[in-house]
């Protein structure tokens, strides 16, 4: 694994690393934001645009966009399911097939399948969860957010 991590970083230029670390919040709200960034970093606008395209194409970033405060638009919940190992892949595939499911992970626990469902309203959310239970034959433990204590400043990367 260590070798792979090293090779990941060796593909990133100084500019890539600066873009990854320094612009996770307060992305410039200017008519030419990539030029604003370029001026801050002392490079050309074209090189910033190219570097962002490379970061997307190589899947180092998912996008430049907003992180929206949970539960202020639509209705969401974390869900956990306890699935026997042999059936996990099949159940996970059913869960992932729903467009309302944003992420879906296996975790080390009896509750081994963890995913987040986001829907337009509570009724839609509950109908998705009921369908998943019906389709898979396993129950969903719903863990909706009660309070969010974290101030999201992005993800501090160390190279």
């Amino acid at each position: 694994m260590r070798v792979r991590i090293k090779s990941v970083y060796s593909m990133l230029s100084e500019l890539h690393k600066q873009l990854l670390n320094n612009f996770q919040q307060n992305f410039p709200l200017t008519e030419r934001p990539y030029l604003t960034i370029a001026e801050q970093l002392g490079v050309s606008e074209a090189s910033v645009l190219q570097a962002f395209n490379e970061l997307s194409e190589q899947h180092y970033i998912s996008r430049v966009g907003p992180v929206i405060k949970p539960n202020h638009i639509g209705c969401s919940t974390l869900v956990a399911m306890a699935i026997p190992a042999q059936q996990l892949a099949a159940v996970a595939a059913v869960v992932s097939s729903y467009p309302e499911v944003n992420h879906n992970y296996e975790r080390e626990n009896d509750f081994n399948l963890w995913f987040v469902v986001i829907a337009e309203h509570a009724q839609h959310l509950q109908s998705v969860i009921a369908e998943i239970e019906q389709q898979t034959g396993f129950s969903c433990m719903q863990l909706p957010l009660i309070a969010d204590y974290f101030i999201n400043l992005g993800f501090a990367l160390e190279w």
């Binding site: 970083y9 996770q24 430049v64 966009g65 992180v67 929206i68 101030i151 400043l153 993800f155």
Partner: peptide
């Protein structure tokens, strides 16, 4: 409503 606006990294791909 927007908690932050900027680059959303894929931390797994970045070695985390």
């Amino acid at each position: 409503l927007i908690k932050r606006f900027g680059v959303i990294v894929k931390h797994r791909r970045l070695g985390y």
